[in-house]
Design a protein around this nucleic acid. Structure first.
Lengths: 334, 334
DNA sequence: ATGAAAGCGCTAACAG
DNA sequence: CTGTTAGCGCTTTCAT
């Protein structure tokens, strides 16, 4: 076992290899002008001492330029964000950058806290699924050269590079598919309009109904279903109505799961189409508005890299496409 | 917009507030002996300059003790790990610690790379879902006082604190449930025995068959189904057999999804019970060996905290329980 | 309650 | 090819 001893430093390695610290630095970082024999000796010494260079010191000395990129996310338990994070991670690691990930559980105070912690750690760039109402506090950071990329939702009261899906068009197309399948009373189950994505998706839902000449029934609007459990309850309510909907458009994958649970429990005949594809949607015969979460993550990382290279370049706001995938009765009735 | 300027330092704040740097340090870090008026003046100056303390410098000066904990994970796209990560994150943030997360895509070389990168960043503790064959290189690190906790699988060729599920018992109980439902030809679909969890689960599967006096049919052992697509293909093969299995025990949630897909595509009558519970298992009427992934993450973080407080304490190897949850035909036939 | 000096571990800038 | 000096931004002595 051995006792806990301090870590070896460059100076320790220098002493053992009988060279200067600068030579050790050069030898280990692969600098060109080092005698091969010296390099070998240094490497051997470093290995003997189990030397691990201190990245804090290195990055401090070299102007606080780290190789860490921060990604602030709402909810790790939602598989959607896992896919986005995987896309980010893959794009970053290809560039030798490390991902620092923090979850906010969609709490604005937590967001501010972790963002500040990351900035103090001098992250190279900040990717953020925004939740707070006001991101003015981030404006200053970009001035200091920290690229900021909004992911899945734009910042509030602030401009930045961003990647979002074409939520409104996607929702519109999804509802059109339900209409084409013969549905006329179509409910919306999802989050409140305070959440950007659901505000957009709700607008798309309304676009589609209006274009079909249908007037909207407020009783079919359940924006109180932000998570699985609440969406399930909202759907139960809908099914108990005197004049229940024949189909539901689910605002995201959480809502869709909730609707599926309620539908199964009630044994009800209820059409369903959800925003967000997921692993078992096909197995369940569930039609969805599909998109590429991993691509979104990768694009966000790309934007950050581009902004690192060109801090003053023009702001880029990417809108990724969606597509309707029909799998259930919505398909057969076309 | 303004141009990119350097960040303000403690010295800049000191100059503006007309005090020494040490006073600024004290005032901002909430040290006791500071005149309230001075503190206010300093805070105002810091705010004016948008001062963000440099955590690199602080942590370097205070002995390289960071507030970051590293978590190295195989696959972010598997919702199971998202849940584990959420458990880790929650437990850490309660202690004011930040999570640094890296994915290895279950590649041993990538694991070594990111582990080293984290150690160089002087993470306070390392949580790791191990993939490499030999973790001898980590032994030295613990000597230097970096707690290491293995998550979901133990380290290879090395001892450490760890949290795993009771895979063998869980699998045994799951197969017993299939036997109780009347199945006699039960296939195993999952990863190869080189993966600890599946080796254990396969052992549990065998235990159950042996206890029932059944002899094992090698043709029913499909350890070539580590991911959804391969598990789906393996199941297709099984269904094409002259004497196909009547049920499958799926080694993890990836395998279960693959089996579900193949079963649906073939319209086959095939019993199924999977290791790992997941969101839609209930909706699908799927019986599972359930456990608490978030708890696993939280326990791993706890172990790390405990080891930080007591580096030389006795190694703790936690084994978390599993439970069989019957939902489909396995239930009705009891 | 405040300040001056020193130094964490490393690398940039200049020698030699 | 190698070494010396200085200093990144902060906190830890130790004074006052």
């Amino acid at each position: 076992m051995g006792s806990v001893t301090g870590r070896a430093t460059l100076a320790d390695v220098a002493r053992l290899a009988e060279v200067s610290t600068k030579t050790v630095s050069r030898a280990l970082s692969g600098a060109p002008n080092v005698d091969p024999a010296t390099r070998t000796r240094v490497q051997r010494a470093a290995h003997t001492l189990r030397f691990r260079p201190n990245a804090l010191a290195r990055e401090l000395r070299s102007g606080g330029v780290t190789t860490t990129v921060g990604f602030v996310i709402g909810d790790l338990t939602n598989p959607f964000y896992g896919l986005v994070a995987a896309g980010v991670e893959r794009a970053l690691s290809r560039q030798g950058l490390t991902l620092m990930l923090a979850a906010t559980e969609d709490d604005a105070a937590a967001e501010a806290r972790v963002v500040v912690a990351m900035l103090e750690r001098r992250i190279r760039a900040l990717l953020l699924v925004p939740i707070a109402d006001d991101h003015g506090y981030l404006e200053g950071e970009r001035q200091f050269g920290t690229p900021i990329v909004a992911v899945d939702r734009p910042l509030s009261n602030a401009t930045s590079d961003s990647v979002v899906f074409d939520n409104r068009t996607g929702a519109h197309d999804g509802v059109v598919a339900l209409l084409a399948a013969g549905h006329r009373r179509i409910a919306f189950v999802g989050s409140s309009e305070s959440l950007y994505t659901h505000r957009e998706r709700l607008a798309g839902y309304r676009d589609a109904l209006a274009a079909a000449g249908l007037h909207e029934d407020p009783a079919l609007l359940r924006t109180d279903g932000p998570d699985i459990a609440s969406a399930e309850r909202a759907t139960e309510d809908l099914l108990r109505m005197a004049d229940p909907p024949t189909a539901v458009f689910a605002g995201n994958n959480r809502a869709a799961v909730g609707v599926l649970r309620a539908r199964r429990a009630a044994g009800a005949d209820l059409g369903l189409l959800g925003f967000d594809d997921f692993e078992l949607a096909e197995t369940l015969g569930l039609s969805v508005v599909a998109h590429e979460p991993e691509q979104m993550g990768a694009m966000a990382a790309e934007l950050a890299l581009r902004r690192m290279a060109d801090p003053m370049g023009v702001v880029e706001q990417l809108v990724l496409p969606t597509r309707v995938v029909l799998r259930g009765s919505e398909r057969s009735m076309r």
